[in-house]
Simulated assay, not measured.
Amino acid sequence: MNVLHRRAVVADLHNDLLCAVVARPVDRWAGFFRERWLPQLRAGGVNLQVLPVFVEDPYRPEGALRRTLRMIEAAHRLAAGNKDAVALCADGAEIDRALAVGRIALVLALESAPGVGEDVELLETLFRLGVRIASLAHFGRTALADGSGEDGTGGRLTRAGVAALAEMERLGMLLDVSHLGAAGVEHVLELASRPVLATHSAARALFDHHRNLTDEQIRGVAGGGGVVCVNFFAPYLHENDYTVDRLVDHIEHIVGVAGVEHVGLGPDFIKEVLADTTPPCCERTLVEGVPADAYLPGLTGPAGLPLVTEALQRRGWRDDDIVAVLGGNVLRLFHAGLGRPAAV
Rank of each mutant, 00 (worst) to 15 (best):
T68A: 08
G181H: 01
R132P: 00
L174F: 12
Y295F: 14
L247F: 06
P61Q: 02
T278C: 08
G220E: 04
L247M: 04
E239M: 05
D96Q: 10
L65I: 04
D16H: 06
V287K: 13
G172L: 08
V221T: 05
H14N: 04
G328F: 07
D208E: 05
P280V: 02
G220H: 06
V244E: 14
D12W: 00
V107A: 05
D320C: 13
E56K: 12
T158D: 09
G81Y: 12
D208I: 01
G304A: 12
E94M: 08
A198D: 11
P297M: 11
A203N: 06
C229K: 03
W29K: 09
I218H: 05
L13N: 03
L41R: 08
H5L: 11
E169G: 01
A343N: 12
L331T: 01
G130K: 13
G256W: 14
D84N: 05
R141E: 13
L123C: 09
A192G: 03
A336I: 00
A93P: 01
C229A: 05
A8I: 05
F33H: 06
A20T: 05
F232L: 08
M168G: 04
D27W: 14
L331M: 10
G328I: 03
C281W: 04
I72M: 08
L197V: 07
G328E: 05
E272K: 13
L265I: 09
L110A: 06
Y295G: 08
G327S: 13
R7S: 06
V55A: 11
G102Q: 02
S193K: 14
P52V: 07
N240H: 15
P306N: 10
T300N: 15
V188W: 03
T199K: 09
L299F: 14
C229T: 02
L41Y: 13
D319Y: 00
R156W: 01
D215V: 09
H253A: 09
D16L: 04
L189F: 11
H238C: 07
A137R: 13
G289V: 01
A342H: 05
A292T: 00
I218G: 02
I72Q: 04
T243V: 09
L110D: 02
E310D: 04
L136G: 00
E118R: 15
D276C: 00
L108I: 14
P114H: 04
H187S: 02
L122N: 01
E73N: 15
V325S: 03
P52N: 10
I72A: 02
V228E: 10
D321W: 05
L106P: 08
L191E: 00
L171M: 09
D146E: 09
R159A: 12
L165H: 13
E190T: 15
R103M: 10
E288D: 07
P302W: 14
A137Y: 13
R97S: 15
P114C: 00
V10Q: 09
R42V: 01
H250E: 03
P279Q: 03
A43P: 02
G130H: 12
S193N: 08
G63Y: 06
A100F: 13
S201K: 00
E111T: 06
T153N: 05
A145K: 06
T68M: 07
